[in-house]
Nucleic acid binder design. Structure first.
Lengths: 113, 113
DNA sequence: GAGACATTCAACCAACGGGTTGACTATCTG
DNA sequence: CAGATAGTCAACCCGTTGGTTGAATGTCTC
């Protein structure tokens, strides 16, 4: 079951600041579900759902030891998402460069409007 | 109205393959709403909603000329999203390196399971 | 075994998303 | 002006999401 990351799930998982926060926590060290939930004003059940969303996206791996669930970040889908974004890197490089250029010499305005 | 990109909106906009497809089209050249809609088996109204979602996320800029709406990609939010992801670059670099290492010498397995 | 503890599950709710259709607005063209 | 064209808007449907609460499951500790 080496599911490789479905971009839809990954990006949607990232589209929520609670979950991005959890990832930030996990970037430091492995965390239990309770630890992940602690900073947020929501029920444990709700936080648990967020963790599951991250897990579905492949961003979190879970290890159960006794009654405790340890979560660690699996960065591969992040790399995958970044790979997708980098497909557009050229564009933002070029266009931001052009923008700067325009700001420096605001003569040639033909590319807008 | 120089709204700077809200990550929630950007990532959620990216979490749909139709919209990612539209961005891909827009990366080539400016496109009208109809042109953007054409490849998909859905009503124009539906496609129009997708375009609006991209617009809300700041990924698309629209210029109306007569009855026609021309859309162009605004790559800045993509750069912003990438910036966020790159905050984790270190992790996937390190951990994927470790993984490779493990695959080469599968002795030390303590970090899994 | 009795609690306490970590977590999930199930049911529920309100809001949102992605799709539809039909009507509407505005523009272009003969 | 009539009709076609580009696009949005509004209402609706249905599945998903993000939250809740209360009960259930499994484990640790005395």
């Amino acid at each position: 079951m080496v599911e490789y990351p479905k971009l839809d799930l990954v990006f949607r998982a990232l589209g929520d600041s609670t979950r991005r926060g959890m990832l930030r926590q996990l970037a430091r060290r492995e965390q239990t579900v309770s630890e992940l939930a602690e900073p947020y004003r929501m029920s444990l059940a709700s936080a648990s759902k967020h963790v599951k969303a991250l897990e579905r996206a492949g961003l979190v791996r879970r290890t159960v030891r006794g009654r405790t669930h340890f979560c660690r970040l699996n960065p591969q889908p992040l790399a995958k998402a970044d790979e997708w974004l980098r497909g557009y890197e050229r564009l933002w490089d070029i266009r931001l460069a052009r923008l700067e250029e325009l700001l420096r010499h605001p003569d040639n305005e033909d590319s807008d409007r």
